[in-house]
Amino acid sequence: MAIAGLLVHSLVEEAEALQERISAMAGMTTYGIHEGQYIVVVAEAPGDQMEAAVDQLDRLPGVLTIYTTYLTIEDELEADGA
């Protein structure tokens, strides 16, 4: 399971609606809206599906761009027998 810390930069008027929508998505946890336009999101997904999950967020209407600020897949390394 990979974990990513994301900053979703959205249009100001869409921010609240987007936050609710993202919270409802599987594997997504939101941590509030800052400065009216940045939604802090932590995404959990299997390592090979993380890119698709972020893409899915990116395509939501009202999303300007996504900044990835944190990414770890260390537990998957453990599963490899480390």
Binding site: A2, A4, T69, Y70, T72, E74, L77
Partner: peptide, 15 residues
């Protein structure tokens, strides 16, 4: 900062 592919022992982080 770790490694950008997230596969390092240090979690990748811009900050």
């Amino acid at each position: 900062h770790g490694q950008p592919d997230g596969k390092g022992s240090v979690p990748y982080a811009v900050s």
